[in-house]
Design a protein around this nucleic acid. Sequence first.
DNA 1: TCCTAATTTTAGGCAAGCCTAAATATTGCC
DNA 2: GGCAATATTTAGGCTTGCCTAAAATTAGGA
Lengths: 222, 222
Amino acid sequence: MDVLTQAEENYLKAVFKITENDDKSASTNAIAAMMSTSAASVTDMLKRLSAKGLLHYEKHRGVILSERGSELATNLVRKHRLWEVFLVKMLHFSWDKVHDIAEQLEHVQSDELVERLDVYLERPQFDPHGDPIPDASGKMAMRKQVLLSSLDPGDQAVVVGVQESTATFLQYLDKMQLSLGTNLRVLERFDYDGSMKIALNDGTEITLSHKVCENLFLQKSK
Amino acid sequence: MDVLTQAEENYLKAVFKITENDDKSASTNAIAAMMSTSAASVTDMLKRLSAKGLLHYEKHRGVILSERGSELATNLVRKHRLWEVFLVKMLHFSWDKVHDIAEQLEHVQSDELVERLDVYLERPQFDPHGDPIPDASGKMAMRKQVLLSSLDPGDQAVVVGVQESTATFLQYLDKMQLSLGTNLRVLERFDYDGSMKIALNDGTEITLSHKVCENLFLQKSK
DNA sequence: TCCTAATTTTAGGCAAGCCTAAATATTGCC
DNA sequence: GGCAATATTTAGGCTTGCCTAAAATTAGGA
Ligand SMILES: [Mn+2]
Ligand SMILES: [Mn+2]
Ligand SMILES: [Mn+2]
Ligand SMILES: [Mn+2]
């Protein structure tokens, strides 16, 4: 039906990401920042995507995705995350290396490919960073997760995701022995700088900065 | 090092394919035909690729790939064929469906991805159509294969490849129960129209047109 | 060899995506 | 409410890849 260029797909995804949390519209500047491009280029593209009915654009008002645009963006996210699972699970890439490759793979056009990949990977619900994978109809699993920074001393929890998934952050977590599935217990929280002291299952005690605590998703286990 | 656009990569591959059998140069028209584009567009691109040192171009003389261009084209062929193996072996696509998807996947840029894919697939030597897969250094297996049309009555042989790999031809072979690895015996050759009667292992006897016989590669087994 | 047909190149143009600089609209603060 | 800062759009331009039509070159047959 609609075959979009990679550029168009990338813009849709940017709008999707910006609007998925806070439901407001996506501003020209926000999109430009996310895509590392100029505001002028964004305006250009927004007009074209609007003409194709993929988003609603009014001068100076920001944009929101149309029904169709939202479907396409969700499918891109699905493909991106499925490929990340493939790269980690089958090709044994580490979780900090897969994003850039998935950025390319997500643009491959073939519904049958996506379906077969999904089956092959045994219909995974979450990607290597703990992000939920939409199913073919766009629905995705919800999980009651909280930021480490919101836990209190005594809380026991398991790491289920990362808020940020830059290579540097992921590599830092590797160094700290933290990965998805890691169990930990909160020992202390320092109000002075928001850092926290936690204990891992093997008894190791580590202190994590506020920034780290704001980027780790956990599920309370007690 | 050189990061090429998909268009540039496709032109390199076209030149590679045209020149790989008969070692002469690739003509503008031949490239245009292979890429379903105009001769003017080809001339345009040849100049650009020549400026990048990927091929040798002289007006009205056709082109040949440079050392570097040949390396890049070979690597593309490697990626294309590895992805085809993945699609058939892992995702259970039929051999007539994989080419178009591999045309897209071959442009994904990541040497590590190719290497890991190769390992994962257990370093296959041939793709689902029997075509040899170049290794990381560009070398590929040679096989002494002949066209079915060159066999004589009494010859016993095994199907190892297809000359043409269009979806219609591959589907025809499926219908005829012919696939890579199929053993057959030549019963008769009709000089009138070049068709041949062959017997399969299960005793089935079929007659194949000259066109089919000219597109099937076999390895004699007796 | 000469002339015509076929091939190839050039010229001119267009759309997609990007850019910078300038113009305009909106926001927020006094 | 008015004005300055900020956000956004417009204008003009560039490259890549494509097109058609016209010009130039090459090849092949008489
Ligand atoms: Mn990612
Ligand atoms: Mn991810
Ligand atoms: Mn192929
Ligand atoms: Mn093949």
